[in-house]
Design a binder for these strands. Structure first.
Lengths: 162, 162
DNA sequence: TGAAATAGTACTAATCTCGTCCTATATAGA
DNA sequence: TCTATATAGGACGAGATTAGTACTATTTCA
C-alpha cells in the first residue's frame, strides 16, 4: 500500500465536513463540533486543524464563538494541497524531493530523474480532484471504464453515496 | 510525502538494472552482481528479488550459473505491478482497500467511496508508465507543460540523463 | 561430490507515526 | 474588567511498522 498517514486521512474527512456546510449559517466550526461529527478524538482533530491552518487552507477565529472555516472556496482547493499540507511535498520517495544528501546513490542513481517524473504523475492526478468533488461525491463508474482505464470526465451522483 | 517503502524503491532500481541488459548476452543476473551494480547490501537485494519472483515479475534459475531475469518484456511490466508486488494493493489508505472492519467510521464514513476513487486515480497513473520507460529515461519537459499540467505523450531522450 | 546460487523463515533493532498532555494567548459576553 | 471558551504551540511516550540480518534447506553445473 502506498502509505498516506492516518492524520492525512483525517484531514480529508475534516475538510469535507467543513466544506459541506460552507456558505450556510454555521460556516464556523469548532474543533469540538468537528470531533463529534467525524467521530475522531478531539486532541487529534485539533492537531490536524492546526496543521491545515498553518498551510493556509483554513482560517481561524479565536475566543468564544471562534472556530475554523475554509480559506478558499471548495472548488479552489485540490487534494494535492490537502495532502501536501499534512504529508509534506508530494513525492513517492525521498530521492524524488529536492533535498540532497539523503541517499548514498545520489551521484549515480540510475533512476532518480524517473522517480521525480513518477511523483509528478501522481501529483498531477491529485491536483485534478478538488475538495468540492469530495462533498459532491464522484461517480465511480464514470471515471473507470470496463477495461479499468481512466476516462477524463468526472461525473457526480445526485444523493450521498453509501 | 506519500510514503513508498525503501524496499519498493530498491525494487524499482533492481528491475531497471535487469531490464537494461535484457536480451543481451548477460540476461541472467545473480543477486550478488545486482548488489554490486546497485550499491545495495546483498541480503536486502536478495530479499527484494525473492518478492518480485513470487509476484511473477521475475523468473529464477537455481544452482551455479543461476540468477534472475524478467518474466516478461520490459514493455509489458507497469510500475503499478512492481509497486503492487512490494507494497501490496495500491491504495492510499486502509479504507480504500476491500478489506472491511479496519475502520470505526466504516458504516457511515463520509468519503469512503471517494477515497477508493482517489486510489484508482493514482493507480491509473502508475499503470501508464512501463518498466521500459525507466530504462529509456522519460523526458521531463515532455510530460509537463508550462502550466504544470500533464500531457498524454511521453517522450524520450537519446542518452542517459543526469 | 563440491561449490555456488536461490528459497524460505525467523528475528532484532531502529525508525516513524499517532495520540495525548500542558501551557500560553486571544476573544466575546456578563 | 473579569471569566469562560476557544485556538496556538510545543513536547513527550507508547505503539506499530519497516528495514536489515542471519540461518538453513534446496537446486544445479562442473
Amino acid at each position: 500500500m502506498i502509505r498516506l498517514g492516518k492524520l492525512t486521512d483525517y484531514g480529508l474527512v475534516l475538510m469535507t465536513c467543513i466544506a459541506r456546510t460552507q456558505g450556510q449559517t454555521a460556516s464556523l466550526h469548532t474543533a469540538r463540533d468537528l470531533a463529534l461529527v467525524s467521530r475522531l478524538p478531539l486532541p487529534t482533530v485539533s492537531k490536524v486543524l492546526k496543521e491545515l491552518l498553518q498551510s493556509g487552507l483554513l482560517v481561524s477565529h479565536r475566543g468564544i464563538k471562534g472556530g475554523y472555516s475554509l480559506a478558499r472556496d471548495a472548488h479552489e482547493i485540490s487534494l494535492a494541497e490537502i495532502v501536501s499540507a499534512l504529508e509534506g511535498p508530494i513525492a513517492l520517495t525521498e530521492c524524488s524531493t529536492d533535498i540532497s544528501g539523503l541517499c548514498d546513490l545520489e551521484r549515480c542513481c540510475p533512476i532518480k530523474s524517473n522517480q521525480q517524473i513518477i511523483s509528478q504523475i501522481v501529483k498531477g492526478a491529485l491536483e485534478k480532484v478538488m475538495l468540492s468533488d469530495l462533498v459532491q461525491p464522484l461517480q465511480l463508474t464514470a471515471i473507470k471504464d470496463a477495461n479499468g482505464k481512466l476516462v477524463p470526465t468526472i461525473g457526480y451522483v445526485s444523493g450521498r453515496m453509501q
